[in-house]
C-alpha cells in the first residue's frame, strides 16, 4: 500500500518517468484572509488546495472534476504559475517551476496555455476578435508578415467553427458560446505543449461541444498536446480524459482510469457525483439510482476535521472526523482517499 506523493505513488511513474510531462507533489495554495486597515494581518487562510499530488503523462488528458470551489481552477493557476503556491513542487518536463525567475517563466509560458472558464470576462472588449486571437502570435514572434498573420488568424477561426470574416468583430457582438470559441482559438495560436482547459466547453451548445472536443482530441493527437481538463460535466470529462481525478475541498478524493472510475467508483463522493448527472433520456434517467447530497461544500476557510467530506458522507464513521485519509492505491491503478473502502488498509 503506497500513499500518494507522486514520485513513488504512481507505480508507473518510477518506470517511465520520461513519459511524465507534469508532476505535482503535495501542492498547497493557501490564500490569506486579512484584517486591519493599515497593518494587514493574516487572520486565517482559505485552504483552496491542500496537499494534492498527481502527474500528467505527455500526450494524455487528465480530467479534473469536483464541486464549485474545490480548488480546480486554483490548481490550474498554480501549475501555470499565475499563483505562487504556498508549498509543494510542480515539475514541468523535469523543471521545477516554483523556483524559476520571471524571465525563465516567460519562456516556459509559451508551452503552457490556458482556456478560461468565463467567456464573458476573459476577452478584452475593446479588441477585435482577430487581434485577440493573433496577439500571442506577435508577442511570441510566430508570424513574419501581415498576410501570414491574417491567414493564421483565419485558420484558427475556422478551427473553432467561426468564419474568418468575423475577425473584425468585437466580443460583444458574439453570443456566450461564440466567445468561448475565440478563447480556444487564442490558446491554440502559439502551438503549446500543455493546455489547462478550465471548463472550456461548459458554455457551449452540445453540438458545438462535440466539435470542440473532437477538435481538441485531433489537435492532441497531431501535436501530442497534453491537457489538464477541468469540467463539471462528468460525461464530457469521461469522454475526453484518459484518467480522471475527483477533487473535494482542496483534496483529491479519487484518481483512476476514465472507465474504471465511472464503472467502478470507489469513493462515496464520486458515487454521489455520478448519480447527480441527469441522463439525456427521460426514460433511462428515471431508472437510475439517485443519491441527492444535502448541504454544500463547507468553507475552505474552516474545513471539517479529518476527512473533509465526512459531514456529507453516507459512509462516515466516527473515525472519519479524526483521521485525514491519504490517497492510496486501493485497487490496481485506482487511488482513493477513504478509510472505509475495502483495500485502504490500516489507518
Amino acid at each position: 500500500m503506497t500513499t500518494m506523493p507522486a514520485s513513488q505513488a504512481q507505480g508507473q511513474a518510477g518506470t517511465a518517468s520520461g513519459d511524465i510531462l507534469l508532476e505535482v507533489n503535495n501542492l498547497k495554495m493557501y490564500f490569506p484572509v486579512t484584517s486591519g486597515l493599515i497593518f494587514q494581518r493574516a487572520t486565517g487562510y482559505v485552504k483552496a488546495v491542500d496537499g494534492i499530488s498527481f502527474f500528467v503523462r505527455r500526450g494524455e488528458t487528465l480530467g479534473l472534476v469536483g464541486e464549485s470551489g474545490c480548488g480546480k481552477t486554483t490548481t490550474g493557476r498554480c501549475i501555470l504559475q499565475l499563483y505562487k503556491p504556498t508549498s509543494g513542487s510542480i515539475k514541468f518536463e523535469g523543471t521545477e517551476l516554483t523556483s524559476l525567475n520571471t524571465n525563465q517563466m516567460r519562456t516556459m509560458r509559451r508551452k503552457m496555455q490556458v482556456i478560461f472558464q468565463d467567456p464573458y470576462s476573459s476577452l478584452n472588449p475593446r479588441m477585435t476578435t482577430g487581434n485577440i486571437i493573433g496577439e500571442p502570435l506577435i508577442v511570441h514572434n510566430m508570424v513574419s508578415n501581415k498576410e501570414e498573420y491574417k491567414e493564421r488568424v483565419g485558420e484558427l477561426l475556422r478551427h473553432v467553427g467561426l468564419n474568418p470574416y468575423m475577425a473584425d468583430r468585437f466580443p460583444h457582438e458574439f453570443s456566450g458560446g461564440q466567445r468561448q470559441r475565440i478563447g480556444v482559438a487564442r490558446a491554440l495560436s502559439v502551438n503549446p505543449e500543455f493546455i489547462v482547459a478550465d471548463e472550456p466547453v461548459s458554455a457551449l451548445d452540445v453540438s458545438i461541444q462535440a466539435q470542440i472536443i473532437n477538435l481538441m482530441e485531433e489537435l492532441q493527437e497531431k501535436f501530442s498536446l497534453t491537457y489538464l481538463f477541468i469540467a463539471h460535466d462528468l460525461a464530457v470529462v469521461r469522454h475526453i480524459s484518459d484518467r480522471v481525478g475527483v477533487m473535494y475541498l482542496g483534496r483529491l478524493m479519487e484518481v483512476s482510469d476514465r472507465n474504471e472510475i465511472y464503472i467502478n467508483p470507489i469513493h462515496p463522493y464520486t458515487k454521489a457525483l455520478l448519480s447527480a448527472v441527469p441522463i439525456p433520456d427521460p426514460i433511462a434517467d428515471a431508472q437510475r439510482e439517485r443519491i441527492l447530497m444535502t448541504g454544500e461544500v463547507p468553507s475552505p476557510l474552516n474545513p471539517p476535521s479529518g476527512c473533509v467530506f465526512h459531514p456529507r458522507c453516507p459512509l462516515a464513521t466516527e473515525k472519519c472526523s479524526q483521521v485525514v485519509p491519504q490517497l492510496r492505491e486501493v485497487e490496481n491503478n485506482h487511488w482513493a482517499a477513504c478509510i472505509n473502502v475495502p483495500g485502504y488498509g490500516e489507518t
Binding site: Q209, A210, I213, H239
Partner: peptide, 22 residues
C-alpha cells in the same frame, strides 16, 4: 443534438458525433 452528447449510461464512443458546421 441527441447524438452529439456523450452519455454516462452508455459505453464511451471513440468519437463524438457533432453537428458539423455552424
Amino acid at each position: 443534438l441527441l447524438k452529439s452528447v456523450p452519455r454516462l449510461d452508455q459505453p464511451r464512443r471513440a468519437k463524438l458525433d457533432p453537428i458539423e458546421g455552424q
